[in-house]
Design a protein around this nucleic acid. Structure first.
Length: 720
DNA sequence: GACCTGCTGCGGTTTG
């Protein structure tokens, strides 16, 4: 055993020996040193199953046992984004703590009330909790916070990458700051992750006041061999006897994946249902027991648990056709291969997915990427002929191999989440002053870009008579208004993100899952859902329940969807690939031929950034990601152009009322001002947006979804 | 042109 081992508390040494470990991993030894010798915050990065949890908790638990801290309450706090992950980690920590007498308390919506009541009476040991449940503790038990967390030694934040930039991440950092504020001292923060694009930014997220003091420990090596194949298919050809491209993809998947355990990321819930249906038909036709299963967030918990158990226990072959539900979190064991249908939206997510395969020593990680492109009709527009999906898949794989992934964008205002936190602090303390709230949430907390003037505007908006979220007492103290009180009282308040209204689907006693209410269904309608075919029997509109029976045919329903953001660097790489000549070795011949077509279409442009398709139709080659391209699209729409957005390309249609395109762009390049929101585009995207004024919504969008500062530069590039 | 995540307190009933 290494020297680090002997620094651990005796019960933990005993536990490690009982596990049959021959030694600590280098990552764990290093973390033991860093945590026991210093007091600095820490980021620990290692692949899934790389031993991060033990690396953080072995030394932390040792400190709790050997050097107890004065004060009441829990000793360690673990924040996790998923209920299943908390349950999983609690089981692991429970084993580790078995001989120590330290309680391990999992806490989320599915944990029995009795366990929570007991823990509140005698808070000690390790509390594992979701951001939403911690929020609920602040709102319902504001007065008990010092008693619950007075002895807290450190906070461990799991899956740090998943909460960096999101609404939930901001909420979590605000709660950490509020805890520190109530305790009157900083808490050591330890972040765990497998996928961080920029360690410096991650450190700044973990401790905004002092990012340079945050330590970083990374597992060395460990990257297993990567095998990649990209297959291209062509849809919509002239020969009606040719099988459809999706059937060819399903056929290839069936042939390659049958008999082993795999994950197929299909890109959307619709496509999960389509491919699950096709693969199950192939399995049935071959007379084989079913081994293909659909998995996405609209399917029932029971069905998802069944699929996860099949994958984890590994005795029978099982392939999940899934969305990002199986990208993050709980251990589903090792899979033989990861397939991706269509280009993914981010390199970070592709890397997380690939981390699910090749986890046994000596096993390669395997990625099978499938892309379907349109048949090259002579009248196809240029955006189609550039084969953007194929090129994006190549760009993503190249960036993945280079080790890059998307960094967070820290300048967003997050005004919706700010409204949520204002209401929460007022509920926690019974009232607050405007200056106190601004100091706690903005100057010390995560809303650093919100200055006093902007904060005043937010308070005025939510305190307006028509909004009624807050009101001011005569002594200036802010209180919850009638509407605010009603919102905060209901348990749906604790989450900062939106969720759509849904029907629940059932076949007899079996719950199948949920479906957005905008699907137009009637008794008799046919449906593909959960990888099986159904006919609607009854619709109970008020109870929001649909009863179905098995059927022989079906159609895939429509799930809600919204466009994703693609990073500048991905799009830049796509245009580099289009202008390049080398053919990546992982392309099979048809994919290589499709790339060749895309390159000749691109070279026909001769490097022109503005391409005139007709006197009224243009292609603008922005070569930028979603944010910059959307900004230009809004500018064009504000003066009447109609715009279609592709990867790094805008298709622009002029009308009689629109100005000359080149003159308009040149004007912006020379500094002419432009009102991006003149045409009143929709701006309510987040949970508390409906309570804000139009100018505030425009500022919020400007901080995250558009980039006005870069617009003139982009227009200059296009017109030079 | 996409995906995912989360949830209290209390009153009633059943069981030992």
């Amino acid at each position: 055993m290494t020297p680090a081992f002997y620094r651990l508390s005796r019960p933990l040494q005993k536990w490690i020996r009982a596990q049959g470990w021959t030694g600590l991993r280098p990552l764990q030894a290093e973390a033991i040193g860093a945590i026991m010798d210093g007091t600095a915050d820490l980021v620990v990065t290692a692949s899934t199953a790389g031993g991060k949890t033990e690396a953080a908790f072995l030394p932390l638990i040792s400190q709790v046992l050997d050097d107890p801290q004065a004060g009441a309450g829990f000793d360690l706090l673990y924040l996790g984004p998923l209920k299943a992950l908390i349950t999983d980690q609690a089981r692991r920590l429970d084993g580790m703590c078995h001989e120590t007498g330290l309680p391990v308390v999992p806490w989320h919506g599915d944990i029995a009330g009795g366990i929570k009541t007991r823990a509140l009476k005698n808070p000690r040991g390790i509390l594992l909790i979701t951001p939403e449940s911690l929020e609920a503790l602040f709102i319902r038990r504001g007065n008990e916070i010092p008693g619950l967390f007075g002895a807290l030694r450190a906070v461990v934040i799991d899956e740090l990458h998943s909460v960096l930039d999101s609404e939930r991440g901001v909420q979590m950092r605000s709660l950490l700051n509020r805890t520190e504020s109530r305790l009157g001292r900083p808490l050591r923060r330890i972040g765990l992750s497998a996928t961080l694009g920029d360690i410096g930014l991650a450190c700044a997220y973990l401790r905004p006041d002092d990012p340079d003091a945050v330590g970083h420990i990374a597992a060395t090596g460990g990257g297993s061999e990567l095998r990649v194949q990209l297959r291209g298919y062509v849809a919509g050809g002239p020969d009606p006897d040719e099988p459809a491209a999706a059937d060819l993809v399903a056929g290839h998947l069936f042939q390659k994946l049958r008999g082993s355990s795999n994950l197929v990321f299909a890109g959307s819930r619709e496509r999960v249902e389509i491919y699950a249906d096709k693969l199950r038909q192939l399995c049935d036709a071959a007379g084989l027991p079913q081994e293909f299963h659909a998995h996405h967030a609209s399917l029932s918990r029971e069905h998802r648990d069944f699929v996860e158990r099949r994958l984890k226990d590994g005795r029978l072959p099982a392939t999940a056709i899934c969305t990002s539900t199986l990208e993050l979190g709980i251990d589903i064991g090792d899979v033989t291969c990861v397939a991706q249908i269509g280009a993914p939206f981010s390199v970070a997510s592709l890397r997380q997915r690939l981390g699910r395969s090749g986890r046994r020593a000596g096993q390669p990680a395997t990625l099978r990427q499938y892309v379907i492109e349109a048949w090259p009709r002579p009248d196809a527009n240029l955006a189609d002929r550039l084969r953007l999906d194929l090129v994006r898949a190549v760009a993503m794989i190249d960036l993945l191999i280079e080790g890059w992934c998307e960094p967070p964008a820290p300048q967003a205002l997050h005004l919706s989440t700010l409204v949520h936190q204002i209401l929460s602090v007022i509920a926690e303390r019974g009232g607050a002053t405007a200056a106190g709230l601004h100091r706690l949430l903005c100057r010390e907390g995560p809303f650093r870009s919100v200055d006093a003037a902007l904060f005043q505007q937010v308070l005025r908006a939510i305190g307006h008579r028509d909004t009624g979220l807050i009101e001011q007492a005569d002594n200036g103290i802010l209180l919850l208004g009638r509407r605010g009180e009603k919102l905060v009282e209901h348990y749906s308040f604790y989450a900062v993100f939106q969720t759509p209204e849904e029907y629940s689907l059932q076949n007899g006693a079996e719950k199948l899952g949920t479906l957005p209410v905008h699907n137009i269904l009637a008794p008799g309608s046919l449906l593909i859902f959960s990888g099986r075919r159904w006919q609607v029997r009854e619709i109970h509109a008020e109870a929001r329940v649909i009863v179905v029976d098995p059927a022989k045919a079906g159609v895939v329903p429509d799930f809600d969807s919204s466009p994703g953001l693609i990073h500048d660097r991905v799009i830049q790489r796509m245009f580099h690939i289009l202008g390049d000549r080398t053919v990546p070795v992982y392309l099979e011949p048809l994919a290589a031929a499709l790339l060749e077509q895309a390159r000749s279409s691109y070279s026909a442009l001769g490097g022109e950034r503005i391409h005139e398709l007709s006197p009224r139709a243009f292609l603008l080659m922005t070569r930028r990601g979603t944010v910059a391209s959307t900004t230009l699209a809004l500018a064009l729409q504000s003066v009447g152009f109609r715009v279609q957005l592709y990867d790094g390309v805008l298709e622009v249609l002029a009308t009689d009322a629109t100005p000359d395109l080149r003159a308009f762009l040149t004007g912006i390049a020379r500094g002419a001002s432009v009102d991006l929101f003149a045409h009143d585009p929709p701006l309510c995207f987040e949970k508390f947006h409906p309570f804000l004024t139009r100018p505030l919504l425009e500022q919020d969008a400007s901080s995250s979804r558009v980039d006005l500062a870069a617009l003139a530069g982009l227009c200059k590039e296009l017109t030079d």
